[in-house]
Design a protein around this nucleic acid. Structure first.
Lengths: 215, 215
DNA sequence: TAGATTGTTAATCGATTAACAATC
DNA sequence: TAGATTGTTAATCGATTAACAATC
């Protein structure tokens, strides 16, 4: 209410990157940095960096620069990384296992409280500190634990059905790998999609563009 | 050279999504669609759709709409999906296996020609039609097969070292999972990063923003 | 004080939306 | 022909960059 202008989504999408670079600097013992130095390291313009940092409060000091730990904390605060949104993961194939096992959930604002699959081969296995449960038990699990977010690591042909089921249980937030866009069907959901195919097609475009420099 | 204005990167990033929806329509036997109908399905404005489609040639017909298969083919052409850029995948852990096994490379402009890891436990296994090879053999492999792109599915602490090695072999294009930004160190590379952590932090922000609607 | 660097305003740039004439 | 829908221009919006006064 005081000096916080609203942070636009294009700024928000840059925050994790700032956070990444600043955390690393902080761990390396760097206490201050100027927008110009940071610009060189990150590839954003110094002007943009100042503009960005300004829209969430005056953390800089003229003639000095920015206090690295202070800035980290501010970003942490804005992104809400100290929160522990309870989440579940559906689909413990290779992708699901990779994510359950390696994603540092509690540094990212989440807490993994359940992993589900319906293949008897994986049910009972442990991954990411969780025992894989049968998908059929999801209803009871929801009633008891009320997860707020679901990570979908399932084949794309199942995403519509599974997301509908989770939605009807009460889940309104998804992290989705694949093609289907949950948010179109359920506009009141909060969704982040990781469209790997799209990303790979974009890379393909870039490669093609590089090979024929002049159109 | 004729009527092709240049396609801006923001348009290009929407193309895979168009392609996805249009392919599906095409498979379903839909021959024509208007910008308005497509708008409802995809969540882009009709105006934007017309604007986008126009910057790569007149595929529409007034009073009728767009020819779906024709449009698909045009996008395919622009993105270069018919190409078969040879690529290798480094790191056959869960993530690497998921990608090697499930990514439809040859629908995305690529061809997977080798998978590498340095863990004796996985070397020799088959995944995505490839036998996993020891990472140590990468130099010889490069000399013989000249892959142009490398997919990095390795722990983030190894990305700098491995990407340097691949760069020095001659690889100039990367699809990278994780934190390290290869393009900052090697500006002449073509890179697509999939920053899963960033995506998850963004989701965390959205969730927090939804919970406190009025600031 | 002099030098450095932010905070902030103004200028620019690009992308999206609105509107409508062209035309199927 | 009348209705529909594109192609295209103009208007709007927002994000990025440039510039510089404020100030540490």
């Amino acid at each position: 209410m005081q000096k916080k202008n609203l942070v636009s989504m294009s700024v928000v999408r840059r925050l994790p990157r700032y956070y990444r670079f600043l955390s690393e600097l902080g761990k390396g013992g760097v206490a201050r940095i100027s927008s110009q130095e940071l610009s060189k390291k990150m590839g954003f313009s110094a002007s943009q960096i100042r503009q960005d940092f300004n829209c969430f409060g005056g953390f800089g000091q003229q003639g000095y620069g920015y206090n690295v730990p202070q800035l980290c904390e501010a970003i942490e605060e804005i992104l809400g990384l100290k929160q522990q949104h309870r989440c579940i993961l559906i689909g413990a194939g290779n992708l699901g296992k990779a994510i359950a096992g390696h994603m540092p959930f509690n540094q990212l604002g989440f807490q993994l409280i359940g992993v589900f699959d319906n293949s008897p081969q994986v049910i009972g296995q442990k991954v990411g500190g969780q025992t894989i449960l049968p998908y059929g038990s999801i209803g009871a699990f929801y009633q008891e634990n009320h997860p707020v977010m679901a990570i979908l690591c399932i084949p794309r042909e199942n995403v519509e059905e599974i997301s509908d089921q989770l939605y009807s249980l009460g889940i309104r937030s998804f992290w989705n790998f694949g093609h289907y866009d949950i948010s179109l069907k359920h506009p009141d959901t909060t969704v982040e999609n990781v469209h790997m195919n799209d990303s790979m097609m974009t890379l393909c475009y870039k490669l093609a563009a590089k090979n024929k420099p002049q159109a």
